[in-house]
């Protein structure tokens, strides 16, 4: 049984996390004008309401498939069952975008259900590149790899995160998912500069941008520790980074993530439309990037 959805472009589109709670509101919305991103793992059951909902969304909107459990950054071999399930989803829904994380979540056959950080060394670089290539082979298309938000660093990292991502992209041909909330979180958490990070980031490899909200806590020394919660509106400093990047490289498919303390659909839609507005107004000013 092969569903064939119209091929839809997400170029210059804004999108929002798809949450089943919003399904009816989205279907009743005459002009949502957005693409939707789903966590791939939530659609890896055999059948039922999850697939029925995603099928209806796919009939009307471009969809982005965002994996959270491939554990590309882990030392273990990728799970062949998980690769096969992922490939089946790509084949079934023909998503406009496919992405995963520079992180790990499984170890020695135990699933930790979190995006854990890795050191950036020659050793981990080869692990990650082999895994990204294996995933791309399995799904027969390139993925976008997302920069993480981190709360700590590895003393023995020998690569900067931006160089590490650039090198993975160069070796595997994968694109990059630039999560600006993660850039901001990591910069505050490590006392570094988000602007400097973006200056060093291979922006020419960016195929999607993520925007989201975060929580503010403190570490042992009382220094700010931002937590990647996806439970609120995109804060101003993240919007500023977004304007800067879009001004520099032009429109890029942009997703507003909201995974907890969900608002009503119109609130989430307004966030996505705010991103679309920034893309369109900046490109109207003639600062469109020539790719």
């Amino acid at each position: 049984m092969a569903h064939r959805f119209p091929s839809r472009s997400v170029r210059a589109m804004a999108g929002a996390s798809f949450k089943p709670q919003h399904l009816d509101a989205i279907l009743n919305d005459a002009q949502p004008g957005v693409f939707f991103e789903v966590h791939a793992e939530n659609y890896m059951g055999a059948g039922g309401p999850a697939h029925a909902a995603l099928t209806r969304i796919c009939e009307r909107h471009p969809v982005s498939l965002h994996g959270v459990a491939m554990s590309l950054g882990g030392p273990d071999a990728l799970d062949p069952d998980h690769l096969a399930r992922f490939a089946a989803l790509v084949q079934r829904y023909e998503p406009a975008l496919v992405s995963e994380h520079l992180a790990w979540s499984s170890h020695a056959d135990v699933h930790y259900n979190d995006l854990l950080p890795l050191p950036y060394t020659d050793d981990t670089l080869s692990h990650v590149c082999a895994h990204v290539s294996q995933m791309q082979d399995a799904i027969a298309r390139p993925i976008l790899l997302e920069n993480p938000s981190t709360y700590l660093l590895f003393r023995h990292s020998s690569w900067s995160e931006t160089d590490f991502l650039r090198e993975i992209s160069r070796r595997t041909g994968c694109g990059l998912l630039l999560d600006l909330n993660n850039v901001f979180i990591s910069a505050i958490n490590h006392g570094t500069s988000a602007d400097a990070y973006l200056a060093a980031f291979p922006l020419d490899r960016v195929g999607e941008i993520h925007l989201a909200g975060h929580d503010t806590q403190a570490d042992d020394a009382g220094l700010p520790l931002l937590i990647d919660t996806h439970d609120r509106a995109v804060p101003d400093p993240v919007w500023s980074l977004y304007r800067r990047v879009i001004g520099q490289i032009g429109p890029v498919p942009t997703l507003v993530e909201w995974d907890a303390d969900l608002p009503d659909w119109p609130v989430l839609k307004a966030e996505a439309h705010a991103a679309a507005h920034i893309m369109h107004s900046l490109s109207a000013m003639g600062r469109r990037h020539v790719a």
Binding site: L152, Q217, D219
Partner: peptide, 18 residues
């Protein structure tokens, strides 16, 4: 011990977030 907080400090509470 391979994990560090800001400016090389011990990871401490930051590890507890994970």
């Amino acid at each position: 011990a391979m994990l560090a907080g800001r400016d090389g400090a011990a990871a401490g509470r930051r590890f507890n977030v994970y």
